[in-house]
Amino acid sequence: MAKIALITGATAGIGEACAYVFAREGYDLILTGRRLDRLEGVASAINQQYNVEVAVSQFDVRDRQAVAETLEALPSDWKQVDVLVNNAGLSQGLDPIQNGSLDDWETMIDTNIKGLLYVSRIVSGWMIKNGYGHIINLGSIAGKEVYPNGNVYCATKHAVDALNQGMRLDLLQYSIRVTGVHPGAVETEFSEVRFKGDKERAKKVYEGFEPLVAQDIAETIWFAASRPAHVNINDIVVMPTAQATATNIFRKS
């Protein structure tokens, strides 16, 4: 029986790239996300390229009931998950704390922290019963340092960093591995989402240097997942060569 990877936020960016990498390595996939048409498109493309099974589950990780009902409705064979990639996450706005949007704050907190927890609680329970598993949480350089106007987004990713450590401790006795992967600047939909669809503003974020791309992070995640069972990569920070910190980027004129 093939191994199974469950990937959240698999409609685009890092999540989609992870789907292709794990399919390449022979994993059957459970792909989740909000946009059913995108999920089905990714599943169809993977089925044409790789000989793997792909299950699609549409839900918003912020919806606790939908997460539980959709995941628990999966057939028992699909609950033999080897790797959970908690990729679903986003940033909204880039405002100083005194001007921050409460709606933006709630969206980030509900997606980046609570959504990750809703999925992890269910899947970790399966892993404990199965006697194996690996949880890989997508953090950010924003979970290692704080930058101006990043306030709440940085706070949510610091929470993810703490949860990596908490999960590692709590699941230690069950031989379940936990890894945190923290990228710097990755050119995906991230900045476009942050700036509410402003493509020009988003594009400027990556001008003058070569950022990471989704495939870079997917390959890093695969490296962690592909280590022998007795090896756990606790934490990985991945940056473009041109980026030293969240805000220190060398841009060519």
Rank of each mutant, 00 (worst) to 15 (best):
A142S: 15
Y174I: 00
H158Q: 00
W222S: 13
S140Q: 05
N149Y: 12
N149A: 10
G208E: 09
F223L: 14
L102D: 06
R168D: 04
L171Q: 01
A155I: 02
H158M: 05
S120P: 14
G166H: 00
I136G: 10
R121M: 01
V123R: 12
A159Y: 09
S226H: 04
F209V: 15
P183C: 02
G184N: 06
N151T: 02
K114G: 02
V152Y: 10
V146K: 05
M127C: 02
A142C: 14
P211L: 03
I109L: 14
C154H: 13
G150E: 01
A225Q: 11
K196C: 01
K114Y: 03
V181N: 01
S124T: 15
G115V: 13
L117S: 13
R227N: 01
H182Q: 10
N149H: 13
R121Q: 15
Y147A: 11
Y206D: 10
V193C: 09
N149K: 07
N112Q: 09
T179F: 00
G180R: 02
K196P: 02
L172R: 13
R177P: 08
Y206M: 06
M127H: 11
R201N: 00
I221K: 13
F190M: 07
A185P: 04
G139Q: 06
A214M: 02
G115W: 10
R194Q: 11
C154Y: 05
T107K: 14
D216R: 14
S226L: 00
M108E: 15
G166P: 01
